[in-house]
Design a protein around this nucleic acid. Sequence first.
RNA 1: GCCCCCGUAGCUCAGGGGAUAGAGCGUCGCCCUCCGGAGGCGAAAGCGCAGGUUCGAAUCCUGCCGGGGGCACCA
Length: 549
Amino acid sequence: MNPDALAELVRDVARDVLTERELDLSALPADAGVERPRNPEHGDYATNVALRTAKKAGVPPRDLATWLAEALAARDGIAAAEIAGPGFINLRLAADAQGAVVGDVLAHGTAFGAGDELAGQKLNLEFVSANPTGPVHLGGTRWAAVGDALGRVLQARGAAVTREYYVNDAGAQIDHFASSLIAAATGGPTPDNGYGGAYVGEIAQRLVAANPGVLDLPEAERHRVFRDTGVALMLEEMRSSLHAFGTDFDVWFSELSLHASGAVQESVGQLKDSGALYEKDGAWWLRSTEQGDDKDRVVIKSDGSPAYIAGDIAYLRDKRARGFDRCIYMLGADHHGYTVRLKAVAAAFGDDPSVVEVLIGQLVNLVRGGEPVRMSKRAGTIVTLEDFVDAVGVDAARYSLVRSSVDSTLDVDLDVISRQTSDNPVFYVQYAHARLSSLARNAADLGLTPGESYGLLEHPREGDLIRTLGGFPEVVRSAAELREPHRVARYLETLASAYHKFYDSCRVLPMGDEEISELHRARLALCVAARQVLANGLALMGVSAPERM
RNA sequence: GCCCCCGUAGCUCAGGGGAUAGAGCGUCGCCCUCCGGAGGCGAAAGCGCAGGUUCGAAUCCUGCCGGGGGCACCA
């Protein structure tokens, strides 16, 4: 019996009891369920349903708990139901009922943990979207890991996900980038507001090599070639480093294309016509204060040119036209003020602002030997995605970024992560998987095959492991609902721990010439299930599940 | 001044109103006659402060203190 089934049973019994006692059925919370108590003495599962229902039903919690416990104890699969404290009911499952979870895992395989509550939802996930004026740095890397993992989690629960990268290839920064490339190609000094990293020289060199004679073009023409080709080369580099990182985008959306196609003009015109924008001081304004902004924002400047947000207006309209139910934006903390503006854009189109969902990720701080490392794209003293991966590898890099809530600023100590020791919890989780893989190989050598006598799995640590496995689908479900993929990472650490503890106490393979028993076979099944769930969880984070380490 | 995030063990971080607040690393002490010791067992050590809501608050609300990040007719 998995937690869902048990919760269903509890609600079922509660309805029976309330009906029988002629109490108010609506007192029962719809989400009444079970939880795993911290203290093992409190049973396999516990429910607070009596506490939550008693007041509204008008009966003392302990009385209600008593009735519920009696009724629960009589049900199949429940070995014991005891009242504790103010009205908790502590439940113990029969070993065979609980062990059936192992069979569930084996039956579902890679699909264990998947669900369908998001089926039919079309979600657009926009993340990274770093300016194509330099390599992806650490902040973008955090989103590359978290955004991709979130996409995997959402897909696992049934959503249709499009990963999208908004390319800011219009605007002054791009011109500064082009000027910097020209300066590098001609041996001139890096211009003010320009970019001076080593990568600028490399790209300039490649650009000139691929376009002989480009330096002899008239200035405007030369600038255009450097800008367009430079951005293309830069993007190709970013795309390939993101790919190596395990993050691939379905759509690379050009900001410039929105201007070139007239989409900006059209969408702004639409909002002018509908009265969503108003004119003041020669400019056109978005009523962002209606969504809580400090002040309204300019969409069309008084000189007639579009402000940055005009692109966002066209872009959101485009996304909605492509049929996305939700547009999720993942932004750095330095852009948090943008949240209300984007919601205001949705509202301007007459949409519910909740179609725009903005996730704010706090910044990643770099530390080296306790000293903070300053990041500056222009000075070239940045730590890039590639630097990070070179230092610790893709798995450790992704895992260390995904395992924490994006609400937390993250301190990454380069000295620590460069050591490549087992400081990182990813090794703990991967090791469990490797150990289980090894066990599977040994079992195969011995001719041991998984068995289904799950009722034999009565050791406390077998029970812990089984219950942990049973909790996986709910973890994935909540990670998707809350947009918090780090929950999966934390779960995996718990699972790895439960497995190691089990393995320390319970012998799986027959010793010496011991005969193969049903217990051996049931334990092997449990191990296969544990390995499956570890692999499924690691896959959700885009981290490999090694057979050997 | 206004807005967002954070404040939990020595460090980095978990903890969706529930019982005795957890993990990794670090410190100290244990455990290998065969399945991977990259493991297990034990010890020391913590919710910034003050109110409020609740049967029950690390969690929700308010205020204060401390840290980080934002507040453009820039992009």
